[in-house]
Nucleic acid binder design. Sequence first.
DNA 1: CTGCTCACG
DNA 2: ACGTACGTGAGCAGA
Length: 880
Amino acid sequence: MAATKLLLIDGNSVTFRAFFALYSQLDRFTNGAGLHTNAIYGFNNMLDVLLKNEQPDAVLVAFDAGSKTFRTKEYADYKDGRAKTPSELLEQIPYIKQLLEARGIKHYELPDYEADDIIGTTAARADAAGWTTTIVTGDRDLTQLTTDSTTVQVTVKGVNELEAYTPAHVKEKLGITPDQIVDLKGLMGDTSDNYPGVTKIGEKTALKLLQQFGTIDNLYANLDDLKASKMKENLINDKANALMSRELARILRDAPVTVQLDELDYMGDQIDALRALYTELEMRSFLAKLGGSSAADKPQTPVEYTVVDDQSIADVVKLTGPVTFELEMLGDNYHTSEAFGFFIGNANVTYVSTDVSLLTLPAVKDWLEAQALCVFDSKRNYVAATHLGLTLTNIDFDVLLASYLLNPDDNSNDLGKIASEHDYFDLPMDEDVYGKGAKRSVPEDDVLFSHFARKSAAMLALQPHLLEDLKSQDQADLFTNMEMPLARVLAKMEIAGITLDQPTLKKMGGEFEQTMKVLEEKIFAEAGVKFNLNSPKQLGEILFEKLNLPVIKKTKTGYSTSVDVLEQLKSASPIIQDILDYRTISKIQSTYVTGLLKAVLPDGKIHTRYLQTLTQTGRLSSVDPNMQNIPARDEGKQVRYAFVPSHPDWQIFSSDYSQIELRVLAHISGDPNMQEAFREDRDIHANTAMNIFNLDSPDQVTPDMRRQAKATNFGIVYGISDYGLSQNIGITRAQAKAFIDGYFAQYPLVKTYMDNMVKQARENGYVETLFHRRRYLPQIHSRNFNLRQFAERTAMNTPIQGSAADIIKVAMIRMDKALADAGLQAKMLLQVHDELIFEAPTSELETLSSLVPKIMDSAVDLAIPLKVESHFGPTWFDAK
DNA sequence: CTGCTCACG
DNA sequence: ACGTACGTGAGCAGA
């Protein structure tokens, strides 16, 4: 008989993980009684996956019995100073235990001992009985329990991505055996469990010592072998700490655990109890799974629809109440993909057809253009409708935009997926209906129309909930008066497109080809061998193995050959400059010459798509092609000569906000010193230079000081670290730290702002922009230093970058209206984060020169003025 | 399909 | 001691 398989779960640790993994969904996971359910949900999800993958014969979930344990008796500060568990999590723990019972799984806790000790003891007993064991936890310390028959699975991300530790994997990752983990912890201590270890010894040093000496005991027995050093002194002074910390880290394998192996049989789901619990918790997807059918995976609710023809289509005008609408297409790119069908529906009926031309019949067109419509992705529908000759003017609810504002993480472009995230499960994903890749196609009518009807029903069901959620998050205004109208403005810009002067670009391409050929030959001659210059792998081998240049930086797959590395190698070999030159031109050629030429549509224009629901900050992004990263400096800038107006005697006109992010920072931080600099329209970088270098007059600011001050200003906006700044401007970390300290001394409220944002993120779980755009930062609670620091920087940066994005969005909406009101022919074509680009008849340039800056700088009323600069010329190159 | 590199704000 | 700037998209190589 095969060995018994035992699954041991660290209940506290996994509950914690599940709670924070779904932290941003806290509001959504609440039942009618006001109980939060996100951790229960996440825990149950993880159970499903584990039970399926591990197929265990026996399962035990261990919990801590309380915060007082034998360890706190030994060392009063153990686990002291931890943030207390949020009440939203605490209230879920009894339910998780109830859930386990209903799923036929034993759970256990033991006064005075931690869950770890229960697991360690039970695993030891299982080893002795010849069982194989899998332990699941979020705590790496448990890897000390790995043996040949016990594997420890540690959560990496959320609760369902696990890293399996076997003795071999521990050896590979740390270079030590599982037994040595306690010695490691003894030396390095543990900040989250709050025990000290040896001063100044961290993981790296501790591992080195253990690889040399094996154990703490042996290390102290042979201390004489270490040469005199600060570290040796610390080891001697902190010996007691090291020994104590080792014992605190040691998980018991002989705790007085009363539950025996033969009581751990996995009994399987207790259907009635489970159904009652799911019902109480309002977990519809799990309830559906219980049904025994595949109901959860494939919605089976029968749906009705009415196929219309050129006569019956006239009935749509009689629809009352909220009306849904959708033009469906297979491709992502709605500029090139054609609509193959549509639906129009309300609560009672869904009209469907695969003949989109029906919509242009006089009986429908006027009605549809004026009707208030609920859609999914309004911009796509605006563009698709335009292709049919329809001008929709009254889309008033977009499920996609609403869902994005509620949480920008929900950036799926699939209605089915978004619906299920909002607890509506009766809609499959498009991919399941249309297929993907080469197999993507329009299914037979009944399948298609049923899908349409389900979509319409989903949209009607979601709309009121989303609207209510938006209101409760104070985002109704952001939704109704910013994102909804912006979608239409963006649609107009995308449809307008920008004309590409193809002959000019092709000519430039030819010249680049020549130059590249010359450089290529030269590089091959210098290297003494031909190779693929575009392959970082091959280039690395040539530079660092054949030519033996010093290795500056490595990537996880090999040598780094990025610009900053090559710059440092310039003096070592003449080949480097040629490679740099080749790289520059090759980039321009592939991405901006051939790349852009490929993107031109038959009208000779480039029609980018702005993604309105992607970025985590509220910025737009641009794809197919990206029009927000066209070269603006050095040689690459030439590409801008190829962007021209669509009519003769027109020009390109461009206006950009000057220092918008720093101005936003000056406003929201309320810092008087920074505000004064902007009120007096001083050179902000020179001003900062005076502050951090302690100068008395602007005349003393050298160009290099200004450059460094500029980098510091950027760093501040990004949520500064001394290391990052030092890397960026090539100074020491100490110098960078001095800059930052000087900065905060001069702009004290900026420092306060930074601290407040981090605090806000910790307390609320999210930060907000000026216009209440929200970003959740669950990782602000992470035990992982890197993830936590990243969340903290993001907390500082997002309100700044996001508010700037809000401001230009307001300006764009007002600009669109102003152009129409003034009866101008000028068209807004592009947005590049802080810049708007237009084409206009030469006769309108004067008007634009005053109108555009006026609209842009009055988009919001800040404590300091916004500044806008404008340029124009015959090409985009000249409008700068 | 991922990683590297590099273009923009 | 840790290992780091914020937000994006595209082309190419190499699995």
